[in-house]
Amino acid sequence: MSLSQVLLLAHVGLAYRPTVVLDHLGIRVTRTWLRDTWGAWCSDRKTIVVASNLSPVQERCVLAHEVEHVLADDVTCGWGPLAVRLERAADREAARKLIAISDLAEVAQWAPDVHAAAEELQVTERMLQVRLHDLKGEGWPWPQGGSKTAG
């Protein structure tokens, strides 16, 4: 089965399982105590290291982010502007897979705020914020800092 077929089977939104993609690619996931990050892609070892104290939602988001590093052939993130660009790209692509627009639109009809929406969408609030920003930063449907049209 090709990678594109696996990605199609992995679905998007609530049904997205980054572990399906990782299994197909032969990428090992190791859990251990990490001091200052939730996860890292070690390209030379074909391993993703994930903090052992994460909730299932946090781990799902971390794995989705790290899958994007794998798919982009990111060797190392390093420091500086390139690192920021790589991290933002991985977040954006992970958020697109984790949060389908149809799921977001459904939850937006009743969720009172970002916290409730993130919980229902099974993502971290940060990942939901990344997705909302990707949809042009309007903060839709929850206002953040005032209206773009009214100031």
Rank of each mutant, 00 (worst) to 15 (best):
L135W: 09
T30A: 14
G137A: 03
A89F: 02
D23A: 15
Q5G: 04
H115A: 15
V20D: 14
L63V: 04
A116I: 03
A111T: 01
G78R: 01
E125K: 08
D73E: 09
R28H: 15
G39W: 11
G13E: 04
Q129E: 14
V6G: 06
T30L: 15
D91S: 09
K46A: 15
S147M: 08
L71R: 00
A83I: 05
A94P: 11
D44G: 14
W142T: 02
R92L: 10
I99T: 00
D44F: 10
H65T: 01
S55A: 05
R45F: 06
W142N: 02
R96P: 00
K97G: 02
G26T: 12
L135F: 10
L121C: 06
R131Q: 07
V114Y: 05
G139A: 02
Q58E: 13
P141V: 00
A72K: 09
L104S: 04
H115Y: 10
L104V: 02
Q122W: 11
V130A: 08
E138F: 12
L98R: 04
V50P: 01
A105R: 15
L14G: 05
E125A: 13
D91W: 09
E59P: 03
V29A: 15
L86G: 05
S147F: 08
R28G: 09
L34G: 07
G139F: 03
K136W: 09
E120R: 14
W38F: 13
R131Y: 08
L54H: 04
L132T: 05
A95N: 06
L86E: 03
E119D: 14
M127V: 12
Q58P: 00
D73R: 11
G80D: 03
